[in-house]
Design a protein around this nucleic acid. Sequence first.
DNA 1: CTGGGGAAGGGGCCC
DNA 2: AGGGCCCCTTCCCCA
Length: 454
Amino acid sequence: MEISSHQFHLLEQLNEQRKQDLFCDCNILVEGKVFKAHRNVLFASSGYFKMLLSQNSKETSQNVIEVMSAASYLQMTDILNVCKTFIKSSLDINEKDKDHYLSLSAKSTNSEPAHPSLYRSRRKAKSNPRRSYSIPDEKADPVNENSWSSYSSYLSSEVMLQQTETQLSKRGRKQGSTRKRRKHLGLSQTHDFVGCKSNKAERASGDNSSSDPSHESRVREEGEFDAENDVERDDYGYNPESEVVPKRWSVAQLEQELSRTPEFMELKAEELYTSMPTILGVMSSWNEDDLPRMRFKCPFCTHTVKRRADLKRHLRCHTGERPYPCEACGKRFTRLEHLRNHFQTIHQAGKLICRKCKRHVTDLTGCVVQQGTRRYRLCHKCLTEANFDSIPDDLDTEHSPVSSTGNKRCKWALEEEQKSEEETMEEEPYNLVVRHVNDDIPEEADEKVKPNLR
DNA sequence: CTGGGGAAGGGGCCC
DNA sequence: AGGGCCCCTTCCCCA
C-alpha cells in the first residue's frame, strides 16, 4: 500500500468511525446541535482545539488546587472539604473511564494483566485505588497528561528492557550482553524526573551521566527540585510564629507558604502517585548461581532497591509525604523512627548528656531544662553557672527535676518562649502520640496547621 | 570565615 | 510488609 493511499484510507476510516459514533471522545455543541468527534483529530487539525484541549481541563484542575491551598491556609475547612470532594469525584470519573478503556483493551488485545498496586498508598487503596498505567491512555486524566507524557518514554524503555531481558534470560542469560543492553537502553540514566537529594545511587551514576549530553538539563531539573524542596525542608512543619505574629505576605511568599501546607504536599503526592507508572522490577546484578537478582527501580530517579517496602519508603522523599507529625511542635516526618528520635531528643531530653559541658548526667547529677517545647539536660554545676533562677516545677513524667529557662537564652529559646507565652499549656509535659495522618479525616486540616499540644 | 556538633533524612538490612 | 536499628551524609547553627 502506498503511503498516500494509506493516509487517505486512514482519514476515511476515521470519518466512518465518527459517523458511526465509534470511539468518539468529544462532543461539540454548535447552536444546540451536538457533533461527535475524535479529540486527537481535532487536536491535530486545529490550533484552536489544540489550545482548548490541552489547556482547558488543566486550568480547571490547577484552579481547584489553588483554591484548596488557599482554603487550607485560611483554615476554611468547608471549602477545603468541597475541594477534596471535587478532586475525589473527578478521580473517580477518570477511574471509571480508565477501567472501561482497559477492559476494552484487554478484550481486544489481550494485553498485560492488571498491574500490582505497589505504588498505591494504603489509605488510597481502601477507597480509591490508584490507576496503573500499563497502557497509555488518550482518555487519561488531563490533569496528569504532562506527567504521563514525561513517563511515557521511560516506560517504553523499561518495558522494552524487561522484554529484552526476558528473552535474553530464556536464551541462557548471557550476562555480558544483558548488561550491555541495559546500559544501551539507559537504565542507569533514565529520567531523573525528580532528583533525590543525597542519593547514593545517583552519585554513583554521576560518572556515567557526566558525559551524557542530557546531563546538564537533568542537573538543572534536579536543581529546580532541590530549590523547591529547600523551601519546605527547614521548617516544613508548623511554624508557631506564623500564628502569633501577623505577617505581610507578598504573592510569592504566600505561594511559598501555601506550597508548604500538608494538604498541598498530599495533593502533590497524590498527583505523583496517580501519574506514576506501575513499579517495574529490573534485573540488576547476578548471583553466584548466575541467576538474575531482582531489584526495584524508582520511577523518579536512578535509585534501585532490593525490596518493595524500601522503594515505598524511598518514594516519600519524592512525593513529600510526611505522615508522622510531632504532637509537640507539629513538625512532620517521613518515618516513625525519625519522629521518635526527634521527640526523644527535642521534647523528652532523651540524651543523658549535659548540654553545656557534654558530660554524662543522670537524674541525680543533673536535671531537665525546658525551653518552650524543647527539653535538655544540664548537670547541677552548669545549671548553677547558667544562673537559672527557677528550679523545678516538676513537670516531667520521668520524675526528674525540670527547670524552666532563666535569663540565658539562645535564639531559638527566645522564639519558642514567645510562643509558649501565648500557649501556657506548653508548660505541661508531652507524650509521644503516634498518629499516621490520613487525609480522609475531615478535621485533619486543622490538626496539621495547629498541632495537638497537650 | 571556619570547624564542630546536633538534628534531620535516607539507605541497608534484620526481625 | 511493616517496624526497628544502625550507619552514613547533609544541612544548619553556633562558638
